[in-house]
Every structure is written in structure tokens, then in C-alpha cells.
Design a binder for these strands. Structure first.
Lengths: 219, 219
DNA sequence: TCGTTATTTATACAGTCAACCAATTAAGGT
DNA sequence: ACCTTAATTGGTTGACTGTATAAATAACGA
């Protein structure tokens, strides 16, 4: 047992630290590869713990995956809801302010020093392209998303509700594609542009999304 | 050996039929699940052939996957290029006509009786959300896509080239999301809308995309 | 100090996996 | 009829999979 400064670092709460280490390693690997392409051994090796600890803390591989999704979903949803409430309170609501309030928290996290978010958004992009984990998106993201849709409905009364929902899911998809390190842009442009300047990308995404949404008016 | 009407049905070219059967089964399964979630046994069982035939015809699982991607990519690219050439010939080029020429062939195939396309587009949507198969998209799709981008550049001279490439990749992503049976819309709208009326979806997609692209003008 | 509990370890198990190979069948060309 | 080649079969192999379990270790409360 390792000691540091004469004080034990093997505390009773070490289990929580181990949990977080495993989740972080899993997040990184699940973001880079698919659920099935990553083995529990890959994860526990990366986390520098033994295999059986994954079973001990999470039971099954699916449970671990779920915890990975949930961890940052709660962070994101809390920020979004707080800012939405603040925006409603101070008045002056516009479509641009609403969409910005929804998307900006994710971009801020992407530019923070916590690089775990980069793996996480790649994981989200995978989830969105496959019905397998649809239930997870529903559980962890739809409630907050629907709050924003309700506001959007007030701002764009001339857009039929169905169009509006569709449009919002368009925006969702574009946001994920933009924020994830998707390298498809590079190849399309013959490598001339890098596609990783998030500030520039964000402005374009916002302009594209707003114009698109407003174009859904009329039946 | 089976006979039918006194004539042998076990011809020398049976190998090609077997190849197609395996590719079609693989396409369906790869579209529904990820590459790693599908085993060669799943595929050969679905195709009603023995396991070893997959190795014989394709060598490796990756090769089979590549052939699945390539088969319909060629079909799609040919239609797109023919129609683009026709559009250029007869003049009257607009952004709407150009984007429609690019997207419509895929929607037509989706509504045809060949239901293999539905699995194929789900596969494409997966490819686009993961860098693992980026090389395949490059090989089979970028050349044609760049033809359309070149035309778009002429039509929108006030949109910086970088914005234009980004915008086109936005459109690509939205097209795939729309055409694949993505059920995310359902849950967002509490199951009120079905999201599988392709004609309606296509009109919305087109409107959203055109407005988005045009909003990318000015530096 | 002793018993309880949480955490960690090493190992085992029952399957599935992709790939490979030798033997067999059938068809085509001559 | 004969030989060559394509196509197909069943079976094996060794690696890897997720999960389970018994034993070891360490911390806490009494």
C-alpha cells in the first residue's frame, strides 16, 4: 500500500475514485470506437485496474456504458436549464438567443481543459446514428430538449409543430457533427481547411441553423 | 444437386449469385447493427450459406464490408453524375436544382421496391459518425461530391469557399439523418409525429438546407 | 482488539469469434 | 472421356469475450 507524506492514500472512499477512473477510460474508448469494438479488458487496462473491478462496480458492460452517458448528461442538462431560466427571466427572448443558449454550453465544455468532453461528444454522435441506444437519449436528454422546443414554439408560431420538431432535430444533429472531431470536412475540401476552429464552426452552425429554422414557416 | 424442369440450376455462375446473397445479408445486418456487433455467422446464416463461403468470396470480414459500401455507391454516383451533366447542359442552374439533383436520387431509391437501400443508408449514417471508415467515404463518395461543390461555388460566389464546404457537409449529414429511419424525432415529439413520410421530410430538408446555405454569405 | 464491510486480486468458465484447411462436388473446355 | 478450375462443405484452431467466484487486503466501528 502506497503512502504519501506519511499519510495513507488508500482511503475507504477509494472505490469512488476507481469508479471514475473506469468511467473515464470507458468514455475515451467508447468515443473512439463502437460499443462492441471495445472490450472490458481494453477499458480496465487503460484505467490501470484489474478486469474484475469493472464487474464489481458496474455489474455489466451495458451498465458501465449507461453510466458513461449519464455522467456528463447531467452536467450539460443542468447548465442548459439554468441558462434557459435566466434567459426567460430577463426577457428579450429571440430564436438566436434560444438556440445559442442550447448549444453554447457544449462548445464551452469542448474548449475547456477537460478533454474528456471530446470523447463524450463523439460517443453522442454515435448514439444519434443508431437506434440501439435510443432509450438512453430519451432518458437523459429529451426532457431538457423539450423545454427548448416549447420555447421555440412560442417564438415561431407560424411554423407547424411537426416542422419545428424536425427542425430542432436537424439542429441537434448539426451541433453534434460540428462539435465532434469529424474529419469529413477535411477530405471534402481536399485538406485545405482544418475544420477544428470551433469558434468559426460555431458561428457558421448558428447562422445555418437559424436560417434553416425560419425557412420552415408556412404550411 | 437440385434440378428444376429437367434443367440444371447449378450453373457455373452460381458463385456470383452467392456473392450477391452474402452482400445483401451483410448490408441488412450492418445497417441495423455496427460492424463489430455483426458476426460472419450472423451474415452467412441470414444468407443461408455456410460460413466458409464468406471467407472464400471475400477473404476477410473487412473486405466484405467494403464491397457492401461500394455496390450501391456506384449506383448512386452514376445517377448523380448523369443528372448533374443533364442539368448543366440544359442551363437554368439554381441552388435548389443543384441540391435537389444531389439528394433526390437517394430518396427515389428509398421509395423504390428495393428495400435494401433502407439498410444501406443506415449503414452510411453510421459511417459518417465515426472516423474508422473515413477512407471508404473518401474513396467512394468524395469525387462526385466535389463535382457538386464546384457547381455550388459558381452559384454562391459570395459564400467563402470554407463556409461552402462546411455547409455542404451539413446538408449531407441532414440528408442521411432524414432518409435513414432515425426515430429520434418521434421521441422528441412525444410520439405525435411518425417521421416516416419521406415526401414531407424531403420538402422540409430541402427548404432547411437551401436557407442554411444562403445564410452563409459574407465573410 | 475483533468482527464487519468495502474493495481488490487472481483465476476460471463457458462461449463466440475470424480465419484457415483438406476433402468433395460440379461445371467448362477440349 | 478427361483434366482443370471454381465453388462449397464440414471441421479445427487459438485467441478473445463477458461474467462469475473465492480468496486476499484494507479500513472502519465498537
Amino acid at each position: 500500500m502506497k503512502k504519501r507524506g506519511g499519510q495513507s492514500i488508500q482511503t475507504r472512499s477509494n472505490g469512488d475514485q476507481t469508479r471514475e477512473k473506469i468511467i473515464s477510460a470507458a468514455e475515451k474508448l467508447f468515443g473512439q470506437h463502437s460499443f462492441d469494438a471495445v472490450s472490458l479488458r481494453d477499458i480496465t487496462n487503460a484505467a490501470e485496474v484489474t478486469l474484475a473491478l469493472a464487474s464489481y462496480h458496474f455489474g455489466t458492460k451495458e451498465n458501465l456504458f449507461t453510466e458513461v452517458i449519464a455522467r456528463r448528461a447531467h452536467v450539460l442538462n443542468n447548465v442548459r436549464r439554468e441558462r434557459l431560466a435566466a434567459l426567460v427571466d430577463r426577457g428579450g427572448m429571440t430564436v438566436e438567443a434560444l438556440i445559442d443558449t442550447f448549444m453554447r454550453p457544449l462548445f464551452e465544455q469542448m474548449q475547456s481543459d477537460d478533454d474528456g468532453w471530446q470523447a463524450y461528444v463523439m460517443l453522442l454522435a454515435q448514439l444519434a446514428s443508431n437506434d440501439r441506444w435510443l432509450g438512453h437519449l430519451r432518458t437523459y436528454y429529451d426532457e431538457t430538449a423539450n423545454l427548448f422546443i416549447a420555447q421555440l414554439k412560442l417564438l415561431l408560431p407560424n411554423v407547424p409543430e411537426e416542422n419545428l420538431v424536425r427542425g430542432f432535430s436537424f439542429v441537434l444533429m448539426l451541433m453534434l457533427q460540428t462539435v465532434s472531431k469529424n474529419r469529413r470536412v477535411d477530405t471534402l475540401s481536399l485538406g485545405k481547411f482544418k475544420g477544428d476552429d470551433l469558434d468559426v464552426s460555431y458561428q457558421l452552425l448558428l447562422r445555418f441553423s437559424l436560417a434553416g429554422l425560419k425557412a420552415l414557416e408556412t404550411a
